[in-house]
Amino acid sequence: MAKLSFLAGFGAGYVLGARAGRERYEQIRRAYDHAKDDPRLQSLAGTLRAQADHAVAAAKSELRDR
């Protein structure tokens, strides 16, 4: 079932990407490159990662206690 979902998502992404064309791809790529180098986003990503780690640890602890 998971493999089927993956293939469906891949196919949809391929079709939508092919329709957008190379120019749109380059535009998205430039925006991504610009965003990943932004120190504010790096800081936000670190904060979100720490919160996610904390939430996972809390969930594991809760499951162990049951």
Rank of each mutant, 00 (worst) to 15 (best):
A2D: 04
S5V: 04
S5A: 11
S5K: 11
F6H: 10
A8H: 02
A8W: 04
G9Q: 08
G9F: 04
G9C: 07
G9D: 04
F10Q: 04
F10S: 05
G11K: 00
A12S: 07
Y14N: 06
Y14L: 15
G17H: 01
G17K: 02
A18I: 02
R19E: 06
R22H: 10
R22Y: 08
E23Y: 02
E23M: 07
R24A: 12
R24I: 10
Y25Q: 07
Y25K: 10
E26D: 11
E26W: 00
Q27D: 07
Q27E: 09
Q27C: 03
I28W: 06
I28N: 11
I28V: 13
R29A: 09
R29N: 11
R29P: 00
R30V: 10
A31T: 01
A31N: 10
Y32I: 12
Y32V: 15
D33R: 13
D33E: 15
H34W: 08
K36R: 12
K36G: 03
D37Q: 13
D38K: 06
D38T: 02
L41D: 00
L41T: 01
L41S: 01
Q42C: 05
Q42H: 10
Q42E: 04
Q42S: 05
Q42Y: 05
Q42P: 01
S43L: 12
S43G: 10
L44P: 02
A45L: 09
G46S: 11
L48K: 15
L48D: 06
L48P: 01
R49C: 12
A50V: 10
A50H: 07
Q51A: 15
Q51C: 08
D53W: 03
H54E: 15
H54Y: 13
H54N: 15
A55M: 10
A55H: 06
V56N: 12
V56S: 04
S61G: 14
E62H: 14
E62C: 12
R64W: 02
R64K: 14
R66Q: 13
R66G: 09
